[in-house]
Amino acid sequence: MIPDELTKGQFDTVYNVLSLAIAAQLFTAIFLLAAQPRVLQRYRQALVISAIVCGIAAYHYFRIFDSFKKAFVSDAPGGESVYKQAIGESFNEGYRYVDWLLTVPLLLMELVVVLALARKLQASLLWRLIPASALMIALGYPGEISGDTTTRLIWGTLSTIPFLYILYVLFVELTRSLDRQSPTVRMTVSRMRILLFASWGVYPISYLLPVIGGDGPVAWVSKQGAYSVADILAKCLYGLLIYRIARLKSFSDEKSFAKDEGKEDLVEAKP
């Protein structure tokens, strides 16, 4: 539940972490777009998708930031020790779910695209991962906005089903398709999957805070911070790893490109 009031320290914490998320998402998107010439043409689509993910996140974090500033106000010049909910205003948590509904499927898409798998296998993975990810987000939203513990648990459990299926596809099905990738690419993909698992694991923990008694201003501020940091890891750091994979595969595909980039030492023999 959204608290009725925040201390100045709590207000500043949320204010600053939302500002950090905006900056991280925005400038990662700019970097990924500017880095297009650093990879071969066939891998640029993955970087564009990654930049779109960060751009969508930056936009929604700006909306979250604006909603937060309107929801908690202080009439005292320079701010007082307590920020109260403004009359007629409320913090809109729905912006996060709109963001996730758009970006989570794209996160999975960019991983599949950058690996340049066989067309049939690529289509098979996408047809399973994208609907499952959209369903996971959609099922979690009714519980997020509910103040009833039972309702939250029911929708949270339903949302977990597609989440577990996505993990199965990423850690079992996708692994079978990595045989033709270089050892360095396989290692990077493994790190990306662990990153997704770790960062996505923050969401259900934050989601369940009200259920386990973690309610009130401290829990709410902690949840906003956890969501924001997890989004930075799952989008910005993930996007940079996508960029690394695209670079490695570019060097492996064309030795002349690796030479031009001064990265001959990163060229690996194809398995």
Results as ranks from 00 to 15, higher is better:
Cys236Asp: 13
Gly214Tyr: 06
Tyr227Trp: 15
Ile232Glu: 05
Tyr227Pro: 01
Leu208Asn: 05
Gly201Pro: 05
Gly216Phe: 11
Pro204Arg: 01
Pro210Leu: 08
Ile242Asn: 06
Gln181Trp: 00
Leu208Tyr: 10
Asp260Gly: 14
Trp200Glu: 11
Lys255Gln: 11
Trp220Asn: 07
Ser199Gly: 02
Phe251Pro: 10
Ser250Glu: 09
Leu195Gly: 02
Gly239Ile: 10
Met192Ala: 06
Ser206Leu: 14
Ile245Glu: 03
Leu266Ile: 05
Leu240Thr: 04
Glu268Leu: 07
Ile245Tyr: 03
Ser256Phe: 12
Arg191Asp: 06
Val218Ala: 13
Ala258Gln: 07
Asp215Leu: 11
Pro204Leu: 05
Ser256Val: 13
Leu240Asn: 06
Arg180Glu: 13
Lys255Asn: 03
Tyr207Asp: 03
Pro183Lys: 00
Ile212Met: 08
Asp260Lys: 12
Ser199Ala: 15
Ser199Thr: 11
Pro210Lys: 12
Leu209Pro: 01
Arg247Asp: 02
Asp260Val: 09
Asp253Glu: 13
Val185Ser: 03
Pro210Asp: 11
Ala219Gly: 05
Phe197Ile: 05
Lys259Thr: 10
Ile242Met: 11
Lys223Gln: 14
Phe251Leu: 13
Arg186Leu: 06
Leu196Lys: 04
Asp231Ala: 15
Ala230Asp: 00
Gly214His: 08
Gly216Leu: 09
Tyr207Ser: 02
Lys263Asn: 10
Leu266His: 09
Leu241Val: 01
Thr188Gln: 10
Ile242Arg: 02
Ser206Val: 15
Leu233Tyr: 06
Leu266Lys: 07
Ala258Leu: 09
Leu208Arg: 05
Ala226His: 04
Gly225Ala: 12
Gly239Gln: 07
Gly239Met: 09
Arg247Gln: 15
Leu266Glu: 15
Gly214Phe: 05
Tyr238Ile: 06
Lys249Tyr: 03
Val267Ile: 15
Ser182Thr: 15
Ser250His: 09
Ser250Ile: 13
Tyr207Leu: 05
Asp260Leu: 12
Pro210Glu: 09
Ala219Trp: 08
Ile205Trp: 04
Ala246Val: 11
Arg186Tyr: 06
Pro204Val: 02
Glu268Gly: 03
Arg193Pro: 03
Cys236Lys: 08
Leu195Pro: 01
Phe257Pro: 03
Asp253Val: 14
Ile232Gly: 09
Asp253Cys: 11
Lys255Gly: 12
Met192Phe: 05
Ser199Tyr: 00
Asp179Gly: 14
Ile232Phe: 08
Trp200Ala: 11
Ser190Arg: 13
Val189Pro: 00
Arg193Ser: 04
Asp253Thr: 14
Lys235Arg: 12
Leu241His: 11
Arg244Ser: 11
Lys263Gly: 04
Gly262His: 04
Pro217Gly: 04
Val202Lys: 00
Val229Gln: 03
Leu209Lys: 00
Ser222Thr: 15
Arg186Phe: 05
Val267Gly: 07
Ser190Ala: 14
Ala258Cys: 12
Ile232Asn: 02
Pro204Gly: 04
Gly213Phe: 09
Ser206Lys: 05
Gly213Pro: 06
Pro217Tyr: 07
Leu196His: 07
Trp200Met: 13
Glu261Phe: 12
Leu208Pro: 01
Ser252Cys: 12
Ser256Arg: 13
Asp215Phe: 12
Asp265Thr: 12
Phe257Glu: 06
Phe197Leu: 15
Arg180Thr: 14
